[in-house]
C-alpha cells in the first residue's frame, strides 16, 4: 500500500453478523499487525473462568481422578464476570483456595448411580456457588427436552453403585496459561479479496469455457449467468486464495481474464466462542485487553527505567 506513508490509522469495525457464540465483522483501515494482535488476544489473553482445582472425595467411576479433573477443567463456564474478577495470584483477600468470592467460584458434584441404566454425569450436575458462573448450556430452546444437547457435557458415565463426589474451584485465567481458559473456539481472519474481471477478455471466451472457468474454483465465488452469458462474482469472500481460477485462465491461454488481489488494509474476521462469553463480547473484551496492554507500555513512559530499557525505541513510542 504505497498510498499510506504515515502509520497513523483509524481502524474501524463493522459488525456483520452477531449470533450468540458466533460473529463476523470487518476490520478496515489497518494492517495485518493490528488484525493479528486482535486475533491473538482473543485466543490467548481474554480472561475466562474455568475449573482449576479439584478435590475428590469419592471416585469409584471408571475414569481416574486426573482424568476427571482434566475433563472438568475443559468445561466452559459462563464468564461474563471474568473481566471484573481478580486473578487468584493477585487476590489480596485469600490465597486462592476458593474461600474468596473475588477470585474463585466453588462447585460441588455429588452423583451416585442407583439404577441399572448407566448414568451420565454431565456439566448440569455441577452445583455452583455463584449462579452467574455456571457451565455453558448449549441447549437449543427449539429442541425437545430429551435432545442430546440439553443434557450438558458428559463428564463420566456411572454404573450401578458407582459414585462421584468432588469439590471444584474455578478461577480466572487466560488462554496463554491453559487452553481451558481460552474463550475462543475459532478466531480467524482473511484479507478481503478484490476480484476484477476483465470484461473485454472475458467476452472472447466461449460459453463452455466460461462455465469451466467458473467451475474451476473449489468454492462458489463466480456464477455463470446462462441468459446474459456473463461471469458474475457472487461471493468474493468465498474465495480461498487458491488461485485455481487464475491457473485455469492461464491454461486456457487467457491470463488476466480474472485478477484477484488481497486488500491489504481490510480484514474479515470470523469469531466463534466456546460459549464462555458471547462472541461479540469477546471482541470487545479483546479490545479492552489490548488497550490495557498498550496502557501498560505507556505507563512505563513515566519511569526512568523504561528509558534505559527501551532506549531509542522508548522515545519512538512516545511519538518522538
Amino acid at each position: 500500500m504505497d498510498s499510506v506513508a504515515s502509520y497513523q490509522r483509524f481502524p474501524s469495525i463493522k459488525m456483520r453478523e452477531v449470533k450468540g457464540d458466533y460473529c463476523k465483522f470487518e476490520l478496515r483501515n489497518t494492517d495485518a499487525s493490528m488484525a493479528n494482535a486482535l486475533r491473538r488476544v482473543m485466543i490467548a489473553e481474554v480472561p475466562t473462568i474455568a475449573i482449576d482445582l479439584v478435590e475428590i472425595e469419592v471416585n469409584s467411576s471408571v475414569l481416574n481422578d486426573e482424568f476427571i479433573a482434566h475433563r472438568l477443567g475443559l468445561i466452559p463456564l459462563t464468564s461474563e464476570r471474568a473481566m471484573s474478577m481478580r486473578f487468584s495470584r493477585d487476590c489480596d483477600a485469600c490465597d486462592g483456595d476458593g474461600q474468596c468470592e473475588y477470585c474463585s467460584v466453588e462447585y460441588y458434584l455429588r452423583v451416585k448411580c442407583h439404577g441399572d441404566q448407566t448414568l451420565d454425569v454431565t456439566s448440569k450436575d455441577l452445583l455452583s456457588s455463584d449462579p452467574s458462573v455456571r457451565p455453558v448450556d448449549f441447549a437449543d430452546p427449539s429442541a425437545g427436552i430429551d435432545s442430546t444437547d440439553t443434557r450438558g457435557i458428559i463428564i463420566v458415565k456411572l454404573r450401578r453403585g458407582q459414585e462421584l463426589r468432588l469439590r471444584a474451584i474455578a478461577r480466572k485465567g487466560i488462554g496463554k496459561d491453559h487452553a481451558k481458559w481460552s474463550p475462543a473456539a475459532t478466531v480467524t481472519f482473511m484479507y478481503e479479496p478484490e476480484i476484477y474481471i476483465n470484461d473485454a477478455l472475458m467476452d472472447t471466451l466461449t460459453p463452455a469455457e466460461k462455465r469451466s472457468l467458473v467451475e474451476s474454483s473449489p468454492t462458489k465465488v463466480f456464477e455463470y449467468d446462462e441468459t446474459t452469458q456473463q461471469v458474475l462474482v457472487v461471493d468474493p469472500e468465498a474465495y480461498t486464495y487458491d488461485e485455481e481460477v487464475i491457473k485455469k485462465a492461464e491454461a486456457m491461454g487467457k491470463p488476466g481474464v480474472i485478477e484477484i488481489h488481497a486488500k491489504e488494509d481490510s480484514f474479515i474476521f470470523t469469531v466463534e466462542s466456546t460459549g464462555a462469553i458471547k462472541a461479540s463480547q469477546l471482541v470487545l473484551n479483546a479490545i479492552d485487553v489490548l488497550k490495557q496492554k498498550l496502557d501498560a507500555v505507556r505507563l512505563s513512559e513515566d519511569t526512568v527505567e523504561a528509558d534505559d530499557q527501551f532506549g531509542e525505541l522508548g522515545a519512538h513510542m512516545r511519538g518522538g
Binding site: R39, R40, I43, K176, V187, T188
Partner: peptide, 12 residues
C-alpha cells in the same frame, strides 16, 4: 508452541 503463534487457515 502456543496456539496463537501457530499458523491458521482462513477457515480457522
Amino acid at each position: 508452541v502456543q496456539q496463537e503463534d501457530f499458523p491458521f487457515s482462513e477457515r480457522g
